[in-house]
Design a protein around this nucleic acid. Structure first.
Length: 501
RNA sequence: GCCGCAUUCGUCUAGAGGCCCAGGACACCGCCCUCUCAAGGCGGAGAUCACCGGUUCGAAUCCGGUAUGCGGUACCA
């Protein structure tokens, strides 16, 4: 039997980190077993589902590199695969037929209870939880009478008695008594639309799903699904309930307490390689002392046997580290391509603040990338790291220009000396090999700390105290601009000195 | 409340009776490297394996109970 598994997101919100992790594990399991991975949109909640969210989910999955074999095409083309359509909103006739079948076999029945009646029954029997079964054994005449009164009705599936047992690949044998299921299950609303617990089973049967891999939050509801499978004479799939991804306080990861949208991570400059790696390590481990796994590595090594049963906190600091690791593994060209939008964004902000900014291009950014790779925990760190190359009118903080051990006069001298030195070397010899030795000699002669001189120059040409290596930075800025900025810094300080007097 | 699941360093985890007075990684601290910031190297601190009993010559690993946490309990998914 070839394995078939699926991810069934609901487009009632943007792609959630937890959904992405579940999608990843399903995808990996399918790849690992040579099976099929299906994407199915669970949009039965028409009120909350939107096409924007649907697109966000599709985009997010693609971004992560998680491709599906069957399901809606991202270009809104026709659904691929033999078991479509893959949007539940387009499968209404199937659900209606399934409900008819249950009704005909008396495995389900119409229930006319109002919210007040259900409330009253519950109050009358504090011991039992859920639905009382008031409408479970109405005669056809009684049903007709209620319909004649115009009372709305939902459809309930008979839960029955006894224990439901199943084997979970992550948790082992699970047994839950039907008395704990909350009574007969509503499978269709009074407007006739089917509910989640019902459609999920109908579709899993129709789509021949062999393995249901999902979050632990579905574990307690699984008996309902098992019963439904039996009702249709279908063998339940094999279940694997994944540990939940948690907020730092160990509750289920939520938008309220954590950043849950995959798109938000993308916008902050996390790269898909790192997100996939991090997600994989939330609940799964290789067994070896390795931490870095590409999607391809995971496809070759993933195994449900090595999935942990207990929940895992989403540790952003670990994600940050992984992100830095994967950024460093990108080729310079790819890194430049991916970082360019972030640089542009940050320069746009500078332009808005009134700065004269030159537009960065791939050609200009690519050669600069090697000097910043190991300084980027996230792509959005590119701005502060290189903006001075593209901003013509830098804001220089005079106080930062003067090292702690120096005074303004020394700084002015230092700046002037370095300028002289650069001019003496000339534009043809404008690099570290030619400039660094004389600068060190200069320090030695004056009794200066090399770091102090370098810091002054750094602030003068970049406006920042933390930058890539000085001579790389000056090369990026260019001979003329470097000299101009050294002069400007010099002028700034001499003005200040005069004002002080 | 009821039911279910879980419980190894702050975090993610290794561990499937002796190899473990518990290993790795992130974070943290120190040192080295060093023009700043990083990156990197080396080292350190950090877990009486939730607790209590039991089985066994021997338990983080098996069994029972307790506690705690989380999840489920909708005409949401």
């Amino acid at each position: 039997m070839t394995t078939r598994c699926r991810i069934a997101p609901s487009p009632t919100g943007p792609l959630h980190i937890g959904t992405a992790r579940t999608a990843l594990f399903n995808y990996l399991f399918a790849r690992r077993t040579g099976g099929t991975f299906v994407l199915r949109l669970e949009d039965t909640d028409q009120a909350r589902s939107t096409v924007e969210h649907e697109q966000d989910i599709l985009d997010g999955l693609h971004w992560l590199g998680i491709d599906w074999d069957e399901g809606p095409g991202v270009d809104s083309g026709p659904a691929r695969g033999d078991f479509g359509p893959y949007r539940q909103s387009e499968r209404g006739d199937r659900y209606a037929a399934a409900i008819e079948r249950l009704l005909a076999e008396d495995m389900a029945y119409p229930c006319f209870c109002s919210a007040q009646e259900r409330e009253a029954d519950r109050a009358a029997n504090p011991g039992i939880s859920g639905y009382s079964g008031r409408c479970a054994h109405l005669s056809e005449d009684e049903r007709e009478a209620r319909r004649a009164e115009g009372r709305p009705s939902v459809i309930r599936f008979r839960i029955g008695e006894g224990a439901v047992e199943f084997d979970d690949l992550v948790r082992g044998h699970v047994s839950i008594d039907t008395s704990q299921l909350g009574g007969d299950l509503v499978i269709a609303r009074s407007d006739g639309s089917p509910l989640y617990h019902f459609v999920v089973v109908i579709d899993d049967i129709a789509m021949r799903i062999s393995h249901v891999i999902r979050g632990e939050d579905h574990l307690s509801n699984t008996p309902k699904h098992v019963l439904l499978f039996h009702a249709f004479g279908a063998q339940p799939p094999i279940f694997a309930h994944l540990p939940l991804i948690l907020n730092p306080d160990r509750s289920k990861m939520s938008k309220r307490k954590s950043q849950t949208a995959v798109a938000a991570y993308r916008e902050q400059g996390y790269i898909p390689e790192a997100v996939v790696n991090h997600l994989a390590l939330l609940g799964w481990s290789s067994g070896d002392d390795e931490d870095l796994f590409s999607l391809a590595d995971l496809e070759a090594r993933f195994d449900l046997d090595r999935v942990q049963p207990s929940g895992a906190i989403f540790d952003v600091e670990r994600l940050d580290w992984l992100n830095g690791q994967w950024i460093r593994r990108l080729t310079p060209h790819v890194l430049a391509e991916r970082a360019l939008p972030f640089l542009k964004r940050s320069l746009a902000v500078a332009a808005q603040d009134g700065h004269r900014v030159r537009t960065p291009t791939l050609e200009r950014l690519a050669p600069l990338v090697p000097m910043v790779v190991e300084r980027l925990p996230r792509l959005d760190a590119i701005g502060p790291m290189l903006d001075f190359v593209f901003i013509d009118d830098l804001d220089i903080d005079a106080s930062q220009l003067v090292p702690k051990r120096w005074d303004a006069a020394t700084t002015v001298t230092g700046l002037a000396e370095v300028r002289r030195l650069i001019e003496a070397a000339g534009p043809e010899r404008f690099d570290g090999d030619d400039l660094e030795p004389p600068m060190r000699v200069l320090c030695e002669g004056r009794g200066w700390k090399v770091g102090d001189l370098f810091m002054t120059v750094r602030v003068a040409v970049t406006g920042r105290t933390a930058t890539p290596p000085l001579f790389d930075v000056m090369a990026a800025i260019g001979y003329d601009t470097t000299l101009a900025r050294l002069r400007a810094a010099h002028d700034l300080l001499t003005q200040d000195t005069r004002e002080d007097r």
